Structures are given as structure tokens and as C-alpha cells.
Simulated scan of single mutants.
Amino acid sequence: MEDITGLVTRHRTYAKTTAALMHEMLAKQDVLLEQQARIFSLLSSSQPLPDCSLDYSDLPLRDPQGLVEMEAKLQDQDYRNKLIKHLSLIGGMDARDAVFRMMKRVLSNNLATKSNWRGMNGKCPFASLQLKEVIIAAALKNPLTPALSACEVERYIKRWLQLAMDREGGRKRRAKLQVLS
């Protein structure tokens, strides 16, 4: 027969775990309610939706040539502003998710594997692109991420680029190559 202290200890552990999970669920629910309230206030405001009437058929960019063409298009301030507005409306659950969604909308995974932040190892340097400034401006303009800094956006962009090799089955392909070696 199990002694009373063991039962009490197990019950306390269970109670603490349950309380922690409930606290986490309530915190996430608060975030969702706050985001919902912001969305509702945006929709109910008398401001018209921004004009984002651009042709986005070239997005996501698939090759370095497309990236060069996009950089040339971003010289036009009107195009740049419309792209920022378009990307800022993508949304996301939090700042990281919003930036990841923007990056996915702008760069294909194939091009992302050929890019990194500084351009090391012959890759395209994302830090020197105007597209980086557009992503930062769009993330800062996103109504769901009001307390975001440019430094945080850069950190999320770097992480998204770092994870490019693992997306779309890249991790499994590398695992198979290691097994065959």
C-alpha cells in the first residue's frame, strides 16, 4: 500500500502542473482577445482600407534575378509604400509569426537558401537590400505587433533565413544523405 506522503506529493505535483497549464492558457487567451479587439477596432473605424492595388504575381521572388528586379522596383516610392501596406496587412499571432509570414510572402524558400544576413559564403546579403527595409517598415506598421522594434524584426529575419535549409523537406533530405554516406 502506498503511503500518504507519496500520494500528497503526487497530488501537489499534479496540481502545480495543472495550475501552470491553466495560467498559460489564460495568458494566451488574453493575447487572442487583445488581438481580436484591435482587429475589431480597425474594421469598425471609418478609415478606408489602404490602396494596395499592385501586381504581386512576381512574389514570392524565386531567383536572384527577380531579387535584382524587385530592388529596382523599390526605387519607386509609390511602389515601396504600397508593398509596405500590403505586407503590413498579412498579420500573424505574434511578432515572430508576422515577420515569418512576410518573409514567406516575399522570398521563396529556394531563394532563401541562397541568401543570408551578411552574404557570407557567396550568398546574397539580405542586410544590404532595400527589401529588408520594406519588411522592417511593414512589421512596424502591422497593427497586431505595436510594441515591435527594428532590432527584433532583424533578429526574426535572420532566423527565418537560417531555417531555410530545413524547410520543404530539407532536413529529411540531409538525413537521408547522412545515412547513405
Rank of each mutant, 00 (worst) to 15 (best):
F126T: 03
M25E: 14
R159A: 07
A150H: 11
R118S: 15
S41F: 07
M93W: 06
Y156E: 06
D166S: 13
K28M: 10
M22W: 09
S45Y: 09
N81G: 01
A150K: 15
L111S: 05
K28F: 08
S53E: 12
L59E: 00
M22N: 13
M165D: 08
R105P: 00
D58M: 10
C124L: 15
A150L: 08
L107I: 09
L67G: 01
Q75D: 11
Q47V: 11
N81Y: 07
E154N: 12
R80N: 05
K104S: 11
M120D: 06
I90H: 02
K73G: 02
V134G: 00
W160V: 04
G122L: 03
P146H: 13
R171D: 07
G170I: 01
M1K: 14
D94L: 08
V8A: 09
E154D: 14
E154F: 00
K158G: 00
G170K: 08
V153L: 04
D76C: 12
I4D: 14
H23D: 13
A139H: 00
N109P: 10
E152Y: 06
A27S: 14
T5C: 07
K158N: 04
Q47Y: 04
Q35I: 04
R62M: 12
Q47M: 13
K176M: 08
L7K: 08
P50G: 07
T9V: 11
D55G: 03
Y79L: 02
R105Q: 08
S53K: 13
N81I: 02
P143H: 13
M93H: 10
Q130L: 11
A72L: 10
Q75L: 13
R174P: 00
R118K: 13
G119R: 02
M22F: 09
A139T: 02
D3W: 13
G169R: 07
R10K: 15
R62C: 09
